[in-house]
Nucleic acid binder design. Structure first.
Length: 257
DNA sequence: GCGACAG
DNA sequence: ATCTTGTCGC
């Protein structure tokens, strides 16, 4: 076969094989980001707020993803799902979505609920090409998404007030691409940006609402715990049970083994 | 050319 | 992300 060098991911969709192709995909999809806010008001009972996250096992080349759904009113868990995949792309700053999204999309499908908002671990519009993983996930699924990251990446911000809820613009030069938001007193801020179908104000309001007791939103904390647990169990299942030397690095390509 | 660099 | 001991504090 000549021509396109695209390959297939675990879900059967085209996936870039090189950094140049990945950047081209971002440039192509970026115009599809919608800025109109379609997220529910924070605290609305009956709405579904989802968190997604992934964990890696580099030695086995496996990524485990988790999706957790919380009720918008009580923040109690109403659904959980996991998925596995071969790591489909190397870590390259600015191309994180190509490493995480196949497994995340799979986990979201298995969730059995359609979230009203998805909170991602990383950035949305706060991205060198304005298309971080939160925006990418939103465009691919049509879901409202926000990005909440733990570090400022390549961006700058002024001082953030000491009180919970205080914030400062996250700047790419003079352009506000997100917000440094303090979710707890005496704790480093988190870095919020728009993913898809949400406003920055709404993204920050949801982040604040979901992060009362801890720095990070409850959605990402739950998803983080779940994908780590899934990865541990996958490792245990291989080591402790089937000792077949030939079958090791080839853990399930997808699904719950 | 040399660092910096979401997770 | 992941590798890793102890330490300070509620």
């Amino acid at each position: 076969m000549s021509g396109s060098a695209h390959t297939s991911d675990a879900r059967g969709a085209a996936w870039p094989a090189t950094e140049a192709e990945a950047r081209a995909v971002q440039e192509q999809l970026r115009p599809r980001v919608e800025l109109a806010d379609r997220a529910p008001a924070p605290g609305t009972p009956g709405t579904v707020l989802a968190g997604v996250d992934v964990a890696y096992d580099d030695t086995h080349d496996v990524v485990a993803a988790a999706a957790v759904a919380l009720d918008g009113g009580t923040h109690e868990v109403v659904a959980r799902a996991t998925a596995y995949a071969r790591v489909p792309f190397p870590y390259v700053p600015g191309l994180l979505a190509f490493r995480e999204l196949p497994a995340v999309l799979d986990a979201l499908e298995r969730l059995g609920r359609v979230p009203d908002l998805v909170v991602c671990d990383g950035y949305g519009l706060a991205h060198p090409r304005r298309f971080g993983l939160a925006s990418h996930l939103g465009v691919l699924t049509g879901l409202a998404t926000v990005g909440v990251a733990k570090t400022p990446f390549v961006f700058r911000h002024g001082p953030v007030g000491a009180a919970r809820g205080d914030s400062a613009p996250l700047l790419d030069g003079t352009e506000e691409v997100g917000r440094a938001l303090r979710t707890r007193e005496g704790v480093r801020p988190v870095f919020v940006s728009v993913g898809h179908r949400v406003s920055l104000d709404s993204a920050c309001a949801h982040t604040l609402s979901l992060a009362r007791r801890y720095r990070l939103p409850e959605t990402t904390r739950r998803a983080d715990a779940l994908c780590r647990e899934a990865l541990r169990e996958a490792a245990t299942r291989q080591t402790g049970e089937s000792r077949s030397p030939g079958e090791e690095g080839r853990a399930a390509a997808t699904g719950r083994p």
